[in-house]
Every structure is written in structure tokens, then in C-alpha cells.
Amino acid sequence: MVTITYVEPDGTERTVDVAEGRSVMEGAVSNGIRGIVAECGGACSCATCHAYINAEWLDAVGPAEGDEADMIEFALDPRPNSRLTCQIEVHSGLEGLRLEIPAEQA
């Protein structure tokens, strides 16, 4: 299990354990974290699992590429630290990961 802190749109911090191999999006959905909608269930097709990765984690998580980068470019309020959380696989190197969920998705 890897500990991840999700900051919900209203600022509430939720720290939960997510199994390795799952995506950061799945960690949010299975723990009822608000703001991650994930309509397409992780198919990189909806951009409703958008979140901002905390600066200190950017290197470990890496940048968005390909389709994901294209989706983010035209998502609501994209920022340099934007990622689609369904495209981030949880592994031990992400222990303590922190990310913020935007107020609106898609």
C-alpha cells in the first residue's frame, strides 16, 4: 500500500492507502474522494480525473505525454503540473504523494 494525500476541491485533505499497480484515479474513486469523476473509467478519454501534482512530486510522477497531454491542453484550467490521474500508476516511489483536485472537471 502507498499513502496518498488528495486535497479535495473545498480544501479538505484526505490521506488514504492505495494498492500498488492501481492508478491514482482508482485510489480516489474507491475511497470516495470528491472531485475525481473519472467518467471513462481510466481510458484516457474524458479528462474528468484531472489533478495538480504538488511541486515536490513532479519529478517522481513525470509529465503528461501524448494523448494525455493533448487532453489536458484543452481541459478546464490546465497548469504545468496537471496530470490525468488515471494515467499515473501507483508504485512504492510515490509514497506520500500529494495532489490537488480542481474545482471543475473536463
Binding site: D67, D70, M71, E73, A106
Partner: peptide, 12 residues
């Protein structure tokens, strides 16, 4: 088709 940008723009 393989064009996520077009999709996102169109949705908007």
C-alpha cells in the same frame, strides 16, 4: 480519431 485535441475543443 486519435485526435484528443479535436475532441476536447469540440466538447467545449
Amino acid at each position: 480519431i486519435n485526435d484528443a485535441r479535436a475532441f476536447m475543443l469540440a466538447k467545449r
